[in-house]
Design a protein around this nucleic acid. Structure first.
Lengths: 103, 103
DNA sequence: GAAACATTTAGCAAAATGGCTAAATAAAAG
DNA sequence: CTTTTATTTAGCCATTTTGCTAAATGTTTC
């Protein structure tokens, strides 16, 4: 049986909020933002104090959540911020708690 | 030495986003919202399929994050949603990613 | 005060997460 | 084709998280 719309939405919340739970991952998004939304893996890792493999894992968790996407350019990988997804999912959830909606 | 304003803010993001990482905890907030922001522990736990102690822990994580507060009423404990905190912290973080701010 | 009620605390086991090093891959350069 | 560069994959260990049951706590009722 296929998943309902609501189920998929809950899953999306889960994967996004789980991705945002780690400080390094939130910081990666902010760093990307500061560099106009696109950086190579190398440029990202040099701003952090963790190992390459650890960074790779953080990046793939963010990618899995759809908060960034990757493009191969030669032997580099460019990671690109998906601001829209971030705003849509987190903002969408937060919106339930707006005063107008539940006065 | 004391913590700077920025450090305290980062810590706040961390504790709030960590609290929101678990599906049950996000759901607790939504359930509270649906009941006008206030419920007893018992009313909350009966809507979930986990044990009492597990719920108690989820509630204390949310409380630690400042997303709910508790009031003792006789032998009951009333948990009260803090919508403002939720909006302030999550919205505040999300705001960095708004188009106007980083066009 | 004894019994019942509402809830938390203690303590443990299983699972998930996050960090590392070493090895692998893939593209570019020599 | 060998070497260098950029990055990921594999695999391991430590820590944290989450769930449970049993016991404890504080409050009301009888």
């Amino acid at each position: 049986m296929s998943k309902s719309r609501a189920e998929k939405e809950l899953e999306e919340f889960d994967v996004v909020f789980s991705a945002l739970a780690h400080e390094a991952r939130r910081r990666i998004l902010v760093v990307l933002l500061g560099r106009h939304g696109e950086m190579t893996a190398g440029q990202i890792v040099e701003r952090f104090s963790c190992s390459w493999p650890t960074m790779t894992r953080h990046l793939s968790i963010l990618e899995e959540a759809g908060l960034i996407r990757v493009e191969k350019v030669g032997r580099e990988r460019h990671y690109i911020l998906n601001r829209q997804k971030l705003r849509h999912v987190v903002g969408g959830w937060l919106n339930w708690f707006e005063e107008e909606k539940n006065p």
